[in-house]
Amino acid sequence: MEARATAKYMRIAPRKARLVAKNVKGLPVEEAVNILKFTPKKAAKVLNKVLDSAVANAEQLGGVDVDSLVVKQIIVDEGPTWKRFMPRAMGRVNRILKRTSHITVVVEEGEEA
């Protein structure tokens, strides 16, 4: 039995979020939460919230042992990019790209590693 949670339009670049997501993929949920709690990156806080939501979704399914959940997948897709402009010298302008992410976490029941 698997459960998933999705956070869309999160204001973090997908490349930065994937760095943190790679660290917890395939781990038991309890261990993944501990790693995310002590990772000093913005993406860790976002991923922790999505992981908590996926665990809560698994609880709602019924018949699922929450203690034996494992992070099956963490998918970080690129969302829409916000285009902003910053004034520069001599009347010029530079384009600033503020990237967003769609984060999906899938947990499933499995034996702890």
Rank of each mutant, 00 (worst) to 15 (best):
K45I: 02
G62H: 08
G63K: 12
I96E: 14
E2T: 11
P40Y: 12
E111K: 12
K42F: 05
P87F: 00
N34T: 11
N48D: 14
E108C: 04
P14E: 10
R99K: 15
E109S: 13
A43S: 14
E30C: 01
K83P: 00
K98Q: 13
R11A: 14
V29Y: 00
D52G: 06
L36N: 05
K16Y: 05
K49E: 14
D67M: 05
V107G: 07
E108P: 00
G62S: 11
V33Y: 01
V50D: 08
K41V: 03
D52Y: 14
R15F: 03
V105P: 02
A54I: 08
G91K: 02
R4V: 12
T81L: 06
N23M: 14
V76Y: 01
F38M: 08
M86P: 01
V76G: 04
E31C: 02
K16G: 03
K42N: 14
L36H: 10
V70F: 02
L47I: 07
P80Y: 03
T6E: 14
V50Y: 10
N34K: 15
V66I: 15
G91W: 02
V105A: 03
V105W: 03
A21E: 06
V33Q: 12
I74N: 03
D52Q: 11
I12S: 06
H102D: 15
K98P: 00
K22P: 00
R99C: 08
L69I: 11
T100M: 13
A113K: 10
N23G: 00
E31V: 15
K41Q: 13
R11P: 05
K25G: 05
K72S: 09
A13P: 01
R84W: 02
D77C: 03
R11H: 11
A5I: 12
R88C: 09
M10A: 15
A17T: 10
K98W: 06
E30Q: 11
G26K: 06
M86A: 15
K45W: 11
V105H: 02
E108Q: 14
V106I: 15
D77P: 01
R4H: 09
T104P: 05
V71H: 04
G91Q: 08
Q73G: 00
V50C: 11
A43I: 01
P28Y: 01
A89I: 08
R11N: 13
D67A: 13
R11Q: 13
N23V: 05
G26M: 08
L51V: 09
